[in-house]
Amino acid sequence: MAPTDEIIGATAAAANMTEAEERSRPVSNLLFIIAMQAEALPLVTKFQLTEDTDRSIFTKGVPWVRYYGNYKDLQINLVRPGKDPSLGVDNVGTISASLVTYASIQVLKPDLIINAGTSGGFKAKGASVGDVFVATDVAFHDRRIPIPVFDLYGIGARRSFSTPNLVKDLNLKEGKLSTGDSLDMSPHDAAAISANDATVKDMEGAAIAYVADLLSVPAVFVKAVTDIVDGEKPTTEEFVDNLASVTAALDRAVTQVVDYINGKCLSEL
């Protein structure tokens, strides 16, 4: 079956199910949103996914890259925002993440989204390089709108989809995730991250959570720590030094998560 035919079939099936029916049946359509190629490719290999070289499911001209395939009882799509056409670097950050999440949900109709990726961690909150966390909550730390109610909108605090059984059975760590569009951390960001009570910080999570919530798709956030933000080493140096080894740890954790999800409905997670 061609990839486009698979999508049409999944879309038609989803349209004929009520929300209650969707929640009570085993998860079958899993969507990964992953920002960086280095984070995505180990999972592409692990789950033996095929790159969609046609790219016709998305708007013409966008650099987004989709991989697809079947793993056990799951149909898996993995989408990353691709590379900047001019600079050739990964399209990281909230704008690309929100756009690709919206488009992917519209076309692929997932039962569940997993945003997997690397992150900074805070030793004051118990994080160490190589730790993998499942985010309990997500929020922004760089959308400062000091007007009543708008300030809460800017923070955009949301609970992620709760997976208590998954976390317990796989013995995974939990913590709050804070998102901003800068790798470094200004004093303003530091104060906001502290107010968010965050254990880890990234550049995409809260944007993905916003879109997923808007379109009523459950989302799980799995983050592996590459650098200790409140540590002694410069963030950029530590990130580069640890990216390969931490991506391997992320790969192992995500594989455990997918194996656990296989055959279960959302309420069992």
Score class of each variant (00 low, 15 high):
residue 74 L to K: 00
residue 125 K to M: 14
residue 107 V to A: 04
residue 126 G to Q: 05
residue 128 S to T: 15
residue 110 P to W: 06
residue 95 I to D: 00
residue 96 S to C: 07
residue 72 K to C: 00
residue 110 P to M: 14
residue 100 V to N: 03
residue 113 I to L: 01
residue 74 L to P: 00
residue 61 G to T: 06
residue 44 V to H: 07
residue 93 G to L: 12
residue 91 N to W: 02
residue 123 K to S: 11
residue 52 D to W: 13
residue 128 S to M: 09
residue 62 V to P: 05
residue 43 L to K: 08
residue 105 I to L: 13
residue 76 I to F: 02
residue 60 K to T: 13
residue 69 G to A: 14
residue 137 D to Q: 14
residue 103 A to S: 15
residue 86 S to D: 02
residue 75 Q to E: 05
residue 89 V to L: 15
residue 111 D to Q: 06
residue 40 A to C: 11
residue 44 V to I: 13
residue 46 K to G: 11
residue 134 V to P: 08
residue 101 T to D: 00
residue 71 Y to P: 04
residue 47 F to A: 03
residue 91 N to D: 02
residue 44 V to P: 00
residue 65 V to P: 08
residue 120 G to F: 09
residue 94 T to I: 07
residue 49 L to D: 01
residue 57 I to K: 05
residue 91 N to I: 11
residue 59 T to M: 14
residue 137 D to C: 10
residue 51 E to Q: 10
residue 73 D to V: 02
residue 102 Y to T: 09
residue 96 S to R: 03
residue 42 P to G: 10
residue 62 V to D: 07
residue 103 A to I: 15
residue 45 T to N: 10
residue 98 S to W: 01
residue 48 Q to L: 12
residue 82 G to R: 03
residue 79 V to F: 05
residue 77 N to I: 07
residue 76 I to G: 03
residue 58 F to K: 07
residue 73 D to S: 15
residue 113 I to N: 03
residue 102 Y to N: 04
residue 42 P to Q: 10
residue 40 A to N: 05
residue 113 I to M: 01
residue 93 G to V: 06
residue 128 S to D: 14
residue 133 F to Y: 15
residue 59 T to D: 11
residue 63 P to K: 07
residue 126 G to W: 05
residue 61 G to K: 07
residue 68 Y to R: 04
residue 117 G to A: 13
residue 118 T to S: 02
residue 75 Q to K: 15
residue 61 G to W: 08
residue 100 V to G: 02
residue 117 G to R: 15
residue 55 R to N: 11
residue 70 N to P: 05
residue 109 K to D: 01
residue 57 I to P: 02
residue 40 A to V: 11
residue 128 S to A: 09
residue 99 L to Y: 02
residue 133 F to T: 11
residue 46 K to M: 14
residue 124 A to K: 06
residue 67 Y to W: 11
residue 47 F to I: 14
residue 50 T to Q: 07
residue 77 N to Y: 01
residue 102 Y to D: 07
residue 72 K to M: 13
residue 106 Q to K: 09
residue 98 S to H: 03
residue 52 D to E: 10
residue 87 L to R: 08
residue 86 S to P: 08
residue 100 V to H: 02
residue 121 G to F: 11
residue 133 F to R: 10
residue 116 A to E: 00
residue 60 K to G: 14
